[in-house]
């Protein structure tokens, strides 16, 4: 009973703070309203006995929002992030898309013939989830991760203003790179 109240209470917190993201007028409040929403979801996942997944959700999302605070000052020109600003735009399109999505999902809830449960939950649901996600597809996962890292590195290299010729000279013979921002290990 207590667990039911806590679970639904956390759900309410998650939805309301998710809505607050669009209601508040400050980038910091929006960012951390989203973080609060994710923390509530992570705590809900603890109630589903997926302890590892729940705690990792909290960890990753809080870190991600903190890093977002860095980017929002780095990349938002004229620093509107530091001033009060509206969190919404294209209101009519957004409202139409929201209503349409809600109708489709609600129709799905009502129309789909939900299966009845077969068997019972395994003793360790996290292991079961991991095997269901990864088990037969481990090769795909193992290939995708280096490809994703390579994509990120390639994207940064292509986007970077300075190339290795700026850093190491035209013949790449300069012993220490010429960087505007010095590093911490004497380079």
């Amino acid at each position: 009973m207590l667990a039911d109240i806590a679970f639904w209470g956390l759900g309410l917190v998650a939805v309301l703070s998710g809505a607050a993201v669009f209601y508040v007028d400050s980038m910091a409040r929006a960012t951390y309203a989203l973080a609060l929403s994710f923390v509530a979801v992570g705590l809900q996942v603890l109630f589903l006995q997926q302890n590892y997944v729940g705690v990792v959700t909290i960890l990753m999302m809080v870190m991600e929002m903190a890093v977002m605070a860095v980017y929002m000052v780095m990349f938002m020109g004229m620093n509107p992030a530091l001033m009060p600003m509206s969190m919404v735009h294209s209101n009519r399109t957004a409202a139409a898309a929201a209503v349409l999505t809600f109708l489709v999902l609600a129709a799905g809830v009502l129309l789909v013939d939900w299966p009845t449960r077969r068997g019972s939950p395994p003793p360790d649901v996290t292991v079961a989830l991991g095997e269901a996600l990864m088990g037969p597809k481990m090769l795909v996962m193992a290939v995708i991760s280096p490809v994703m890292v390579a994509t990120i590195v390639a994207g940064v290299v292509l986007a970077a203003h300075r190339t290795r010729y700026d850093r190491f000279g035209d013949d790449l013979r300069r012993p220490t790179p010429d960087d505007p921002q010095p590093g911490g290990v004497g380079r």
Binding site: Y32, A35, N51, Y52, V55, V56, I58, L59, V62, M63, M65, A66
Partner: peptide, 17 residues
């Protein structure tokens, strides 16, 4: 908690925020 080490880690990330 069976993932107490992760819990501690999640809390120390809270300090960032």
């Amino acid at each position: 908690l069976d993932v107490g080490v992760m819990w501690f880690n999640a809390m120390d990330v809270m300090v960032w925020a």
